[in-house]
Simulated assay, not measured.
Amino acid sequence: MINTIIFDLGAVLIDWNPNYLYSTIFTEDERHHFLTTVCTPAWNEEQDGGRSLAEGTQLLIEQFPEHEENIRHFYGRWAEMLGGEISGTVALLTQLKESGNYKLYALTNWSAETFPIAEERYAFLSWFDGIVVSGAEKDRKPFPSFYKTLLNRYAVKPEEALFIDDNLRNIKAAEELGIRGIHFQNPDQLKAELIAYGLIS
């Protein structure tokens, strides 16, 4: 029986995309090159895992001094990468919350330095019974220790939990710990799977 639902945030509930910022700076080809060779997802994940924004920025500037200005924009203008809430998923979160049947948590790879911006912008973040932020823990998905932090902190039994994430790598890591997973693709697909689990109607 599932009594706990754990959400990822970025690309599930919150529309975050570096392209929103860099489309105002580069052509499409330039933007693609910059975000796949300079400010890469792997580099950003290190800040999500606890490395300071200042250190991460400086390391990259040393590697790519010709891109210094645009590297500094990544965190200097980070709020411009935030879109709105993903309304279809927030509607499902609302339904789950209002049912009163489930504990709701968030497990997110997110820098501790930028997460307060999201907390101010998205009121639904206050609905969770707990949020575990990778940057604050200096740990991140897909490492098992990060999932265990949430399980232990909130006394969650893996077999009673369902985890929703847009990254299949993170879903597989949760399943290794005995947590059922839904690989999020869009709100309609998520709704269908929640109905299939009998969690909503």
Rank of each mutant, 00 (worst) to 15 (best):
Y75P: 10
Y75T: 10
G76P: 12
R77S: 12
R77E: 15
W78A: 11
E80L: 14
E80M: 13
E80C: 07
E80F: 09
E80R: 13
M81Y: 01
L82P: 06
L82E: 12
G83H: 12
E85N: 09
E85C: 06
E85P: 14
I86F: 10
I86V: 12
G88P: 06
G88C: 06
G88D: 03
T89D: 04
T89Y: 07
V90W: 07
V90P: 08
V90S: 02
A91K: 13
A91P: 02
A91G: 02
A91R: 13
L92S: 10
L92V: 08
L92N: 09
L93T: 03
L93S: 02
Q95S: 12
Q95E: 15
Q95M: 10
L96C: 03
K97M: 00
K97F: 03
K97T: 05
E98H: 12
E98M: 08
S99F: 01
N101K: 10
N101P: 00
N101Y: 02
Y102P: 11
K103N: 12
L104Y: 02
L104S: 04
A106E: 05
A106W: 02
L107E: 05
T108K: 04
T108L: 04
T108F: 03
N109H: 07
N109R: 06
W110F: 14
S111N: 05
S111W: 10
A112F: 01
